[in-house]
Nucleic acid binder design. Structure first.
Length: 203
DNA sequence: CGGTGCCATACTGTTATTCG
DNA sequence: CGAATAACAGTATGGCACCG
């Protein structure tokens, strides 16, 4: 049924085919929920269904993994407009919105040229966008009285001060280059436990 | 007065354009 | 043709202006 691949230490990227439109959704599932029953909503057809993540995990045997590898590679490199998925009925992750991508296998280069809207471009939110979104929520949760402007500013500074935690992207190179500089920003250290869930987008 | 739309914030990534 | 530069879109949301 579903196939899961390694994403980060805290989340697992799973590919779950939609029961209704057969589109394969890339779902980022927290490791704590990997063996729960979660509700998935297809961003393409908007239908919802439940997925037993434990069964999904077991069904993704090593034999089937080979046959999926190529397809998943295509999924991972596809950058369509974002679809949302939520775990509405899951008691453990009822408030999370997950970014998912339908597994259309269009040529990214071709889409870049052909599917360009005539006026406004629809773009997939970058890692920075994701960071800001979740960081603002976190800051406001910690400081309910803070203004949105201040929260936004703080989130942006956190991003600027911690390039090495940018969702694990280019971790190795940036970390080496900016490790020394980041030491000066020690006072801004964010409680890692409170950090937004890192999504290892592979666009 | 309610609904709608725009702007502001910081910053990055993508795309288009220009120039050597 | 490749590099450099500019413009724009995206993230959330409060506040303000405008219109019916």
């Amino acid at each position: 049924m579903a196939t899961c691949i390694d994403s980060t230490n805290s989340e697992q990227l799973c590919y779950i085919p939609c029961n209704f439109c057969n589109i394969v959704l890339a779902v980022s599932v927290p490791c704590s929920n990997l063996f729960d029953i979660v509700t998935v909503r297809c961003g393409h057809c908007t239908n919802m269904w439940t997925v037993n993540m434990a069964a999904a995990f077991q069904s993704s045997s090593s034999s089937s993994w080979q046959s999926h590898t190529h397809h998943l590679h295509q999924v991972a490199n596809y950058t369509p407009p974002e679809y949302k998925i939520d775990f509405g009925s899951s008691s453990k992750c009822n408030s999370r919105n997950m970014a998912v991508r339908p597994s259309l296998t269009n040529n990214p280069r071709e889409e870049r040229i052909v599917n360009r809207p005539p006026e406004k471009r629809q773009r997939v939110p970058s890692a920075y966008n994701q960071f800001i979104k979740e960081e603002i929520q976190r800051i406001k949760a910690n400081n309910p009285d803070i203004t949105h402007r201040e929260a936004f500013s703080t989130a942006a500074k956190n991003w600027a001060h911690f390039p090495h935690i940018h969702f694990g992207l280019t971790l190795e190179t940036k970390n080496q280059a900016k490790l020394g500089a980041s030491e000066n920003a020690e006072k801004h250290i964010i409680h890692r436990a409170a950090m937004p869930k890192i999504k290892n987008f592979t666009f």
